[in-house]
């Protein structure tokens, strides 16, 4: 019975186990990998895609998809930079406006999906094109530079030791986890993703919930965009493009289902994001040929998903009802 329990524990936490294994593996190859500083780097680099992936998790929970986050990031970052550089707005209000821009892109998605009944895939594909187009229109595709007051924020530490971007990431994760696990809204979201029709019958205002997820996703995309700006200081025309796939991959790697109802922010999406970032860092640490790096990356992600699917069937087997009397 005890071994059975152990097996179950390992299976249930296989993603975490794999995470630790990969960590140790890279550590053995490159001892410096084990430093706290490195882990901090990984976390801070994971923070922006992680923030976006948290928003994506909300959308995925309802069975939707948001392909527009990369463009939302770009548009809101452009607006923020332009406001600071050309309108002379202080950083804080400019950031607020840029978050508002993200929220608005999300609201457009929400409106099209819940009111006009467009398919999420097409809707967010359209907003992806239009939002980036609009950003290019504003900037004429010229890069937007941010003043030092913004880039200095990336070196600031909260409570003296947590870098700002990690702090924001942790706050987002904490808040999202509480919302999803402890509030009426969150639990109803899971219900909507599990069975939309039943949710409607149970009196859940499903349209409102679904709409809200796209707005959350848009808002967090803008926030993620800002977090990364503080680190890189400049927004060029390709900023954020393709990030939607990274965010989806992180969430799905963390166990979220594209059909809705399944997925967690913590540990799921967080683990997925950090894992991808960690593998990338490990490949650099191990100084592996740059042509081989993406191949190894793909192989590791494949094995992670593979193990996950095997464990799901194994857990099902273990938890199958025992109808024989003992």
């Amino acid at each position: 019975m005890e071994t059975n329990r152990l097996v179950k524990f390992v299976l249930k936490n296989s993603t975490a186990v794999l995470f630790v294994l990969i960590f140790i593996m890279f550590g053995l190859i490159a001892p410096r990998f084990f430093t706290a500083k490195n882990f901090q780097n990984i976390m801070s680099n994971a923070s922006y895609i992680g923030i976006i992936a948290v928003g994506m998790t909300f959308v995925l929970l309802t069975g939707g998809i948001d392909l527009s986050v990369g463009s939302t990031m770009y548009l809101s970052a452009v607006v923020c930079g332009k406001l600071i550089n050309e309108a002379g707005l202080p950083v804080f209000p400019a950031v607020m406006v840029s978050l508002l821009v993200g929220l608005m892109v999300g609201a457009v998605n929400a409106f099209a999906i819940t009111r006009l009944r467009l398919v999420p895939f097409i809707t967010t594909l359209i907003t992806q094109t239009i939002a980036r187009g609009f950003g290019l229109f504003i900037t004429r595709s010229v890069a937007v530079n941010y003043p030092d007051s913004v880039t200095l924020m990336s070196t600031s530490k909260v409570l003296g030791f947590i870098p700002l971007q990690i702090f924001i990431f942790l706050m987002v994760v904490l808040l999202a986890s509480i919302v999803l696990n402890r509030t009426r809204y969150g639990r109803q979201l899971y219900a909507v993703g599990n069975d939309l029709e039943s949710a409607k019958k149970a009196g859940i205002k499903s349209d409102r919930l679904i709409a809200s997820t796209y707005m959350i996703s848009g808002l967090l995309a803008a926030l993620g965009g800002f977090v990364t700006i503080t680190q890189i200081g400049r927004v060029n025309a390709g900023f954020g493009s393709g990030d939607e796939f990274d965010a989806i991959a992180a969430a799905v790697l963390g166990g979220a289902s594209l059909f809705g109802g399944i997925g967690t922010v913590f540990p799921g999406t967080v683990l997925g994001t950090v894992m991808i970032e960690m593998i990338q860092a490990g490949l650099v640490f191990a100084n592996i040929d740059i042509y081989i790096q993406p191949i190894i990356m793909a192989a590791i992600i494949f094995s992670a998903v593979f193990i996950d699917s095997v464990r799901t069937t194994q857990i099902k087997k273990l938890e199958r009802r025992n109808i024989l009397k003992v």
Binding site: R32, I49, V284
Partner: peptide, 24 residues
Amino acid sequence: VEIPTKWDANVALANLQSAMQANP
């Protein structure tokens, strides 16, 4: 040390940071 960037500032940031950590 070769640091992949994929012409993407975010990727460049993450990988350069790792590279500097691995090879100070």
